[in-house]
Design a binder for these strands. Structure first.
Length: 1119
RNA sequence: GGGCUUAUAGCUCAGACGGUUAGAGCGCGCGCCUGAUAAGCGCGAGGUCUCUGGUUCGACUCCAGAUAAGCCCA
């Protein structure tokens, strides 16, 4: 006996049972053992930030990762199964700051850097534990750490990081301090997920930076960049995440810059950032725009003609016009010339009009206030034009010395006072509220300002003014940019394919990579600056550091390479020998993630091992953002290290939204937490939603969608399984132990042969789709197959299972359905690992003691070519099409399916197809409830025709003349054409004076209309049913109706399906005639053993209409 | 301003290689089935396949341009 399978199932509860089964049976480790000598398939996981619980959007990506890994495992490959956690950087810091209630960097310093860094590590461990548990819940098979161990480490880190602890690793016990154990997580001796805060990850980045340094690609640059004054750090181009802008309203100001040599005249200037006016050095105009001098009261302004309407309020008079070019060099009084910073820099003295092509007049005044210390474009301009640079802001957005009353003030607090100051100076024209998209800090939402800073960069190579194809080898040799493009073009494939174009676009245009950040928790950049000789040196390894160290080594030793411990070490400057300190900056976190194709695969310690796994066969992440983030950093670092691409295939996918089409947002009430989704929908359902989604399109995720998937995919699948087990148990049918993997025997039954062929075709297509990274295509194919299985094979086969005698046909039905279900479970195991496991356990493991103990330890099904019968699949398709047409005809005529019909006529199909229909006639007759089928050449008996050319054949043959032929055909009576065609087998058509001979195949004959028949037709074939009902047919219809009614009454009376009954019937003579004529049939179908004249008082009685005739039916159980 | 993507039924989406009745699910209407049944099946209504040009005998499909939306960059 199989374990009973109810037709309703709690998928969620079942998933928990399966999880227990996998865990208790160590099934994942058995899989690794099973494949340990197999060929390798390399997947590199993009690290998930261990900063929050996992979201349903993460589950999308993780489902893909698991899908491909499970698929490849069943195909017989070994894998590394290493998950990754992203651990360092500002996003971790920000959350820890928030938890601790810190407002600014000085709070961190007051708290103590060592404690803060420790807290960051603990935060990572905590969330890594949670995300691990959630991933396991999803069914994501990876070499996971024990979450309890991660929590234990977190606790012990809080107690005392220097205490010693022993933990079990894959190759035995490892003893070390807690701090070092945490620093060694993910390394071979400890196993489990990799953590980007690991010592190995950090030191491998050092190796990479050293290579850059040796090539002269690392430099310290001065730049004006977006700055968050709260985080007190620059926001690099590479890390502004998707929504780094907000719609914000600021008070903008129109003000006058009085011209020094044109008394009474001013430039009218506009800005939305009044704090930058302190640092004005020039005013830019477009050389080709027209500028006007307008008079308003006693004021005279210059501004661009196109900006007049927008800028000027009230009446004015235009006095004069000049092209912008003629304004060049005009000197003016700046708004803050009294400030020491203006005086010392020479800006106050030198204010003048400059020309700039980027000036526009769509907003503002067409004259752009230029402050090179406060804006990136302005800074560029200052370099071109030799303008002084005034940098007003220091750390935390505080005005520096030289700004008088502003010095010491915070930039976000000064706007009103600046307006007041300018009003007193009498140069304000007007203020205006202005709404625009303004950059904000992607972590804390603080409005960004632009600040002149020193940061460290990796040079990405000059952008050459020519297409990639024309870049020479010699140029490439020196240029990381083109080396990256080269490896990407030559060695990688992208899914969806447009990913390649997007990555190349980024590579072509990317700026140098800013790798420094003035923060605390992250990679310690191994850059040592000598204050004696200004030389800087990059240290490439721990060993080199030790060798060069001149002080502080004792304070660092035993710690992970993080601040503050690493900062204690000073080295001897390789140039002058003086003691040099590490720059205090930490690294950009994409360095951490980008190095993992080296750091996690023992690049530094076991180059052979690394070579076996590099490059990855696959990486997979969500594409928004990653083209310039992880994909980019991975490629950049791999190119620096080896000038090779880090992966062969990149499968990426879009963004997950809520069902309302908007981003999920807690405050909008449309967010769904992973845990809730998993326990409500079940993860198999979620996984199917993810797999079936088109990866290049955004996925709308929600409960409505999940209900649909459950109803349309999982429940039908489960119901077929439930049906099989239920009847197998009733019949005592048992498969032989090896039946699940035996080649199916040839069944005499066409349905069996058909479904087995369909199964093979499905196996073939699904495998192809998975091999080409098209899971959505695979899902569509599977859904089609499940529909075939459930709504055709099983529906048509039901009676084969019910019949009481155990004949060969019944055995064939059981064997077939059994083998189909087992193979389908294996086929779907990578997609929906839980339900398929449940089915496999019951159908296979309970029978065959030698079977793999899990479906996931079995092999992926291979196509059994011998079972493929494409012509049978075509024939069945034809039969189903005809049945569809027949049903449509019934619908049209209003004759329900229970009413038998004498004959249907079928036409428009070839003789071969007729033979096929004859072969499947029993099916067609039964489905349509008709007595016989007749075939017809033409439809004239049932309807009229339309005749059209077969465009597909005639188009290539006659070209444009096809249209003329079509016209000529439609002008002729279709019946005449049909007769001619039937007579001679061909058709002669005169069109535009030319005569064409068309044979049968070149003509489409289509039907329409009806006359006493109900006819339905598609492009070439038709089904006509005779609507005439003989007395015999009517009686038979009544009989079937009676069976139906009696069955319903049985159900209303709450009888069991196997209860025998006595029956009474009181009705019209016609109904009694029908009953007598079909008595055997009716009593057999309804399990009636006694027919009584009048019912006993205990009988269940019901009066109703039966096909319009009054009838009272009584039923009673017979004991 | 540049790169990439998307535009098909009320909604969510399918529609290699261009072929003349453009499909599914949901929703809606009608019907069927009832030994998978708090399911299932069928039929129907509903679409100028965003617009404009072009290529072609023929364009939802290919090309160009426009419009709108999204992502990225400037």
């Amino acid at each position: 006996m199989f374990k009973d399978v109810p037709n309703t199932v709690d998928f969620v509860a079942q998933e928990h049972q399966i999880l227990d089964f996998w865990r208790d049976g160590n099934v994942f480790h058995k899989l690794k053992t099973l494949r340990q000598a197999a060929p390798r398939w390399s997947f590199i996981d993009g690290p998930i930030t261990a900063n929050n619980p996992m979201g349903v959007h993460h589950a999308w990506g993780r489902t893909y990762k698991d899908l491909f890994q499970r698929f490849k495992a069943m195909q017989g490959y070994q894998m590394r199964y290493q998950n990754g956690f992203d651990c360092q950087g500002l996003w971790i810091e920000v959350n820890v700051e928030r938890d601790m209630g810190f407002k600014a960097k000085k709070d961190i310093e007051a708290y103590g850097l060592d404690e803060f860094v420790n807290a960051c590590k603990r935060q990572v461990l905590r969330h890594a534990a949670t995300q691990t548990e959630q991933s396991v819940r999803l069914g994501y098979w990876m070499d996971w750490n024990d979450p309890d161990l991660l929590r234990e480490l977190e606790t012990k880190m809080a107690q005392d990081p220097s205490q010693t602890l022993t933990v079990e690793g894959p190759n035995g016990a490892v003893t070390d301090t807690v701090e070092q154990l945490v620093g060694r997580l993910g390394l071979p001796e400890l196993g489990g997920s990799y953590f980007t805060f690991s010592n190995e990850n950090n030191y491998t980045i050092w190796t990479m930076l050293k290579k850059c340094f040796d090539r002269g690609w690392i430099y310290k640059g001065t730049d004006v960049m977006p700055w968050c004054s709260r985080c007190d750090t620059g926001i690099s181009q590479h890390e502004i995440v998707t929504d780094g802008y907000r719609e914000l309203t600021h008070t903008s100001i129109f003000l006058r810059f009085p011209l020094r040599n044109r008394p009474g005249e001013s430039l009218l200037v506009w800005t939305t950032t009044p704090w930058t006016l302190t640092s004005n050095v020039a005013a830019a105009v477009h050389p080709d725009l027209t500028y006007a001098l307008v008079e308003q009261g006693t004021d005279r302004f210059w501004l661009s003609k196109g900006a007049l309407e927008n800028a000027i309020r009230g009446d004015y008079r235009t006095l004069e016009e000049k092209p912008g070019g003629e304004l060049e060099g005009w000197a003016y009084d700046g708004p803050f010339d009294e400030l020491p910073a203006q005086q010392i820099s020479g800006a106050a003295e030198g204010h003048r009009v400059i020309l700039w092509d980027e000036v526009g007049e769509a907003e503002g005044t067409g004259i752009v206030h230029t402050a090179p210390g406060c804006g990136a474009e302005d800074f560029e301009l200052s370099k071109e034009q030799g303008l002084p640079v005034i940098a007003p802001l220091g750390a935390e957005g505080i005005y520096l010395d030289g700004f008088d009353w502003l010095t010491g003030r915070q930039v976000h607090t000064v706007a009103d006072d600046i307006f007041e100051n300018l009003k007193q100076k009498g140069i304000v024209y007007r203020l205006e509220e202005y709404t625009h998209r303004y950059p904000v800090c992607w972590r804390c939402e603080e409005e960004l300002v632009f600040r002149l800073v020193d940061e460290w960069f990796i040079s990405m190579g000059e952008q050459l003014d020519k297409p990639y194809e024309q870049v020479t080898e010699a140029e490439k040799e020196q240029n990381l940019r083109y080396q990256m493009m080269e490896v990407v073009l030559n060695e990688t494939k992208w899914y969806p394919s447009f990913g390649l174009a997007r990555e190349l676009d980024w590579l072509r245009n990317m700026h140098d990579w800013m790798i420094s950040k003035k923060r605390y928790w992250g990679l310690a950049l191994p850059i040592y600056e000598c204050h004696e000789c200004a030389h800087f040196h990059v240290v490439g390894s721990l060993e080199e550091l030790k060798e060069l160290a001149v002080e502080g080594w004792d304070k660092f030793e035993g710690h992970t390479p993080h601040r503050p411990w690493i900062d204690a070490v000073k080295i001897a400057c390789p140039s002058c020998g003086a003691a040099a300190s590490r720059i205090p900056d930490v690294g950009n976190p994409w360095l951490d993630a980008g190095i993992v194709s080296f750091s996690t695969m023992q690049y530094r310690t076991d180059r052979d091992y690394w070579g076996q796994w590099f490059p990855a066969d696959l990486i997979s992440e969500s594409f928004p953002g990653q083209f310039r983030n992880w994909f980019y950093s991975l490629i950049a670092m791999s190119t620096v290290m080896e000038r090779r691409a880090p992966f062969k295939h990149n499968f990426s996918y879009a963004t997950l939204f809520a069902e309302d089409g908007r981003a999920m947002h807690k405050s909008w009430g449309n967010a769904i937490w992973f845990d809730d989704a998993a326990e409500t929908m079940g993860v198999d359902v979620m996984r199917w939603m993810y797999c079936a989604a088109k990866p290049e399109q955004n996925l709308l995720f929600g409960y409505k969608h999940s209900d649909e998937v459950r109803r349309q995919v999982l429940i039908p699948f489960w119901n077929v399984y439930s049906f099989l087990v239920t009847y197998a148990n009733i019949d005592g049918w048992r498969p032989t132990a090896t039946l699940w993997k035996d080649t199916p025997q040839r069944s005499e039954n066409l349905l069996d042969r058909w479904i087995l062929s369909r199964l093979q075709s499905t196996v073939r297509s699904v495998t192809e789709r998975l091999e080409t990274f098209s899971p959505d295509g695979a899902c569509r194919i599977v859904e089609d197959f499940l529909d075939n299985l459930s709504n055709w094979y099983l529906r048509r086969s039901r009676r084969r299972f019910w019949k009481s005698e155990a004949d060969t046909d019944k055995a064939a039905a059981y064997q077939t359905l059994y083998q189909v279900m087992v193979t389908t479970s294996r086929l779907l195991a990578p997609f929906v690992p839980f339900v398929t496991e449940s089915i496999f356990q019951n159908l296979v493991c309970s029978v065959d003691p030698d079977a793999p103990e899990s479906v996931h330890l079995s092999d992926y099904p291979a196509v059994e070519e011998g079972l493929v019968d494409l012509s049978l699949e075509d024939d069945m398709k034809l039969a189903r099409d005809l049945i569809g047409l027949g049903r449509a005809a019934r619908n049209q005529s209003g004759i329900k399916t229970r009413q038998p019909i004498g004959r249907i006529g079928i036409g428009g199909i070839s003789e071969k197809q007729q033979a096929a229909v004859n072969g499947l006639a029993a099916l067609v007759l039964d489905e349509l409830n008709v007595k016989e089928i007749s075939f017809h050449e033409g439809i004239d008996e049932f309807a009229t025709y339309t005749i059209k050319p077969n465009f597909k054949l005639l188009g290539p043959k006659y070209g444009r003349n096809v249209q003329a032929i079509a016209k000529a055909m439609s002008a002729t009576d279709a019946l005449d054409l049909k007769r001619e065609l039937d007579g001679s087998g061909e058709l002669e058509i005169q069109a535009d004076g030319v005569s064409y001979r068309l044979d049968r195949a070149e003509i489409d004959v289509q039907s329409a209309n009806r006359e006493g028949y109900a006819v339905e037709a598609d492009a070439y074939k038709f089904v006509a049913l005779s609507t005439e009902l003989t007395h015999e047919l009517i009686l038979e219809g009544l009989a079937r109706e009676l069976v139906n009614k009696i069955q319903q009454i049985r159900k209303e009376a709450d009888f069991n399906v196997s209860d025998r009954i006595s029956l009474s019937l009181e009705s019209t003579p016609t109904v009694h005639e029908a009953f007598e004529r079909h008595r055997a049939y009716i009593t057999h179908e309804t399990l009636t053993t006694i027919v009584v004249e009048s019912s006993s008082p205990n009988a269940f009685l019901k009066s109703q209409k039966v096909n319009g005739e009054d009838a009272t039916i009584g039923v009673e159980q017979v004991t």
